[in-house]
C-alpha cells in the first residue's frame, strides 16, 4: 500500500501533458458520461442527500441535535482523540518512514507488511485483535476495554500507515547530496534536519496528517467491540449517527453526518492543495 500523494493530473508533467492531452472524442465523451453517471448515482447523489436531509430537518433539528449533550460529548471525544492520535502519527509515522528508507537490517521487508496490516485488516477484526492484547484477558495486564483509552488505541491502530506511507516516497526521492553539502558547510545534524529535511517532508507529513485525522474522526468498526460504545464516555460520532439511524431519526443522523462530511471534504481539499503545490514546485 502506498499513499503517495497522487500527482494531480492537471499540474504534473506539463510538457508531456501538453502533447498528450486530447479534447474529448465522441467515444471518450460517452465514456465520461457513463462514468459520471455511475459516480453520481453511487457517491455524489447519496452524499448530497445527507446535506439535503440535514437542511430539510430544519435549523431547529440541526441545533437540537448538535446541542444534545450526548452528541456534543461524542463529537468532543472523537475530535480530541483524533487530534492526539494524528500528533503521535506525525512523530511516529515520520520516524517509521525514516527507518524504512534510511536504515537497513534483516527483516525490514517484514516491517513493510506489518505497517500495512491496519489498512488491510477488516476494522471489526482490528477491534478484536486489539481486545486480545489490551482487553480483559490481556497477557500484559493492561485492560483499556470500555474506556477512553480504547478509542485512542483503536484510532492509533487504524491510522498507522497514513503518514508513514506518504512520507516514505518523498524521503526516497530526497537528494542526499544537499544534506551532505549542508554537513560539509558545517551544519550540525540538527540544523540539517530542521533546515533541509523537515521542510522537504512537511507537505507529505501534512497530507498524511489530513488523511489520518479524517480517518480518525470517521472510525467505526474497530471501536464496536473495544470501546463498548458507552454514552458520554466512549461513544464516538459514527456510533452516534448509527444510533440515530437505528431509532429512525434520519434527520438527526444527517445533522451529525454533515459535520463529518465537511471534515472529509476539508481533508481532501488540503490534500489536493498540497499535491498541486508540490507538483508546481517540482
Amino acid at each position: 500500500m502506498t499513499f503517495e500523494t497522487p500527482t494531480e493530473p492537471g499540474t504534473a508533467r506539463r510538457t508531456r501533458r501538453a502533447r498528450s492531452a486530447n479534447s474529448l472524442t465522441r467515444s471518450s465523451g460517452l465514456g465520461l458520461g457513463i462514468a459520471l453517471t455511475w459516480f453520481s448515482l453511487l457517491v455524489l447523489i447519496p452524499l448530497a442527500l445527507i446535506v439535503i436531509q440535514s437542511i430539510d430537518g430544519g435549523w431547529e433539528t440541526f441545533r437540537l441535535t448538535l446541542t444534545n449533550p450526548q452528541t456534543v460529548s461524542a463529537l468532543r471525544l472523537t475530535v480530541e482523540q483524533s487530534l492526539i492520535v494524528t500528533l503521535i502519527n506525525v512523530v511516529m509515522g515520520t520516524l517509521i518512514a525514516w527507518v524504512l528508507v534510511r536504515d537497513d537490517f534483516p527483516g525490514k521487508q517484514l516491517l513493510e507488511v506489518v505497517i500495512d496490516i491496519p489498512f488491510a485488516l477488516p476494522t471489526i477484526v482490528a477491534g478484536l485483535v486489539l481486545l486480545s492484547l489490551y482487553g480483559p484477558t490481556s497477557p500484559l495486564g493492561i485492560n483499556v476495554a470500555n474506556t477512553e483509552r480504547s478509542v485512542f488505541l483503536a484510532l492509533l491502530f487504524v491510522t498507522l500507515p497514513f503518514i508513514a506511507r506518504t512520507v516514505q516516497p518523498v524521503l526516497l526521492e530526497l537528494d542526499r547530496d544537499v544534506e551532505e553539502a549542508a554537513a560539509s558547510l558545517g551544519a550540525s545534524r540538527f540544523v540539517t534536519l530542521r533546515r533541509i529535511i523537515l521542510p522537504a517532508l512537511a507537505p507529505a507529513i501534512a497530507a498524511g496528517a489530513a488523511l489520518s485525522f479524517a480517518r480518525g474522526i470517521s472510525e467505526y468498526g474497530s471501536l464496536v467491540l473495544l470501546s463498548g460504545n458507552l454514552p458520554n464516555k466512549t461513544e464516538v460520532a459514527s456510533v452516534r449517527i448509527l444510533t440515530y439511524i437505528e431509532n429512525g431519526n434520519e434527520a438527526a443522523a444527517a445533522s451529525v453526518a454533515v459535520l463529518l462530511l465537511l471534515v472529509a471534504l476539508l481533508a481532501i481539499t488540503i490534500l489536493q492543495i498540497i499535491t498541486s503545490r508540490v507538483a508546481r514546485r517540482g
Binding site: P46, A214, S218, I241
Partner: peptide
C-alpha cells in the same frame, strides 16, 4: 473530479451507509 474521487477514502463508513439509505 480528480479530487472528488478520493472522497470515499475520507468519509465515515456509517455516513456512507446513511447516504445510500437516503438514496
Amino acid at each position: 473530479l480528480s479530487a472528488l474521487i478520493d472522497l470515499p477514502l475520507a468519509v465515515s463508513p456509517v455516513v456512507v451507509g446513511l447516504a445510500l439509505l437516503l438514496a
